[in-house]
């Protein structure tokens, strides 16, 4: 049960990352790998502010803003200085490694006695249960802190997803979606596609920064290494989401990204429980994304070959 609740909580938190990656990769069609640095940036900023005694929501919003700034810089590098998109992301991601160390002052900031964003909800839940410490769900004992974190993660993610969906259906959001599909057409409609891209990358990385802040509060620490491979996580989640709900409609796609993230997290937890070496996790994830990208193509060819073979036989 702890495993399920833990997976759901992390999955929901990382949904914010997946939604961010969805904005850059799917909507803007921009291979933005700033993400690996941004999630750590969000975690660092939030952790440092929490240690300094700021309110959790202040720390989380500050982390979001910091993430948005990172995305903004990547966008500016690409549009104003004409640096290739991958390279723009690499530059910012690399720079962020040092920035993160500067922000934290060392490579790891533990959050021991700080309040987290779920604390208010935990307080409410504690007054509702008999012993003031844990709920009993179908015979399982779940500490109120864990339950509160799960609910908070759900509320935040659901709110973000709803807002994003609303936004994408506005005039501005429609222009942003068109920018990814056909920048030439967008320019012909009098829209500055470059500014659109910069804005979209800021949104995307803002969400990733927020995911970092929540992750730090859930795990109880921020670490300079925690972002490595996160972009692949996000992609894997989106691919699973698309397999679950298909590719039609932005609303479905956002829900799909969330479901994909949670499911992927569950799969990982199960794999680890079954004895997968945690050191191999990133290799397995990368292999999974590779397979998901390549199999549909070769799968079709294979089927065609087999059908063709039978045809001529």
């Amino acid at each position: 049960m702890t495993l399920v609740i833990g997976s759901f909580t992390i999955g929901l938190i990382l949904s914010l990352l997946s939604i961010g990656v969805f904005i850059s990769f799917r909507i803007l069609r921009f291979c933005d790998i700033t993400v690996d640095g941004t999630i750590t940036l969000g975690a660092s900023v939030a952790a440092v502010l929490l240690v300094q005694g700021h309110a959790p929501w202040v720390a989380t919003l500050a982390a979001t803003a910091a993430g948005a700034l990172a995305g903004f810089v990547t966008g500016i590098l690409h549009t104003r200085f004409r640096i290739q998109e991958i390279l723009s992301g690499i530059l910012v991601m690399t720079a962020l490694y040092s920035v993160n160390l500067r922000v934290m002052g060392r490579s790891n900031v533990p959050l021991l006695d700080t309040r987290d964003i779920a604390a208010p909800l935990a307080g409410v839940l504690a007054t509702l249960v008999e012993d003031g410490e844990a709920l009993h769900l179908a015979g399982w004992r779940v500490p109120v802190q864990d339950m509160a974190m799960l609910l908070t993660a759900f509320l935040v993610t659901a709110a973000v997803a709803w807002l994003l969906h609303r936004f994408l259906l506005t005039q501005f959001g429609t222009a942003m979606r068109a920018t990814g599909e056909n920048p030439q057409m967008v320019r012909a409609q009098g829209i500055n596609n470059q500014n659109m891209l910069v804005f979209g990358l800021a949104c995307s990385n803002g969400l990733v920064g927020m995911a970092g802040a929540l992750l730090a509060q859930y795990q109880g620490f921020a670490d300079v290494q925690m972002g490595i491979g996160m972009i692949v996580w996000g992609l894997a989640s989106i691919i699973i989401g698309e397999a679950l709900v298909g590719k039609t409609g932005v609303g479905l796609a956002i829900v799909g990204a969330m479901m994909g993230t949670v499911l992927f997290r569950l799969l990982v937890a199960i794999a680890l429980r079954w004895g997968l070496d945690p050191n191999d996790l990133k290799l397995v994830t990368a292999a999974f994304v590779f397979a998901a990208l390549v199999l549909p193509r070769y799968g079709k060819q294979l089927v065609r070959k087999m059908l063709g073979g039978r045809h001529y036989a």
Partner: peptide, 20 residues
């Protein structure tokens, strides 16, 4: 409809109203 909506506001600011 979404394509045309962009053209309906050509040269104007794209706002936060519902597009379609």
């Amino acid at each position: 409809a979404e394509n045309i909506v962009l053209a309906m506001r050509r040269g104007q600011r794209q706002g936060l109203r519902r597009a379609v």
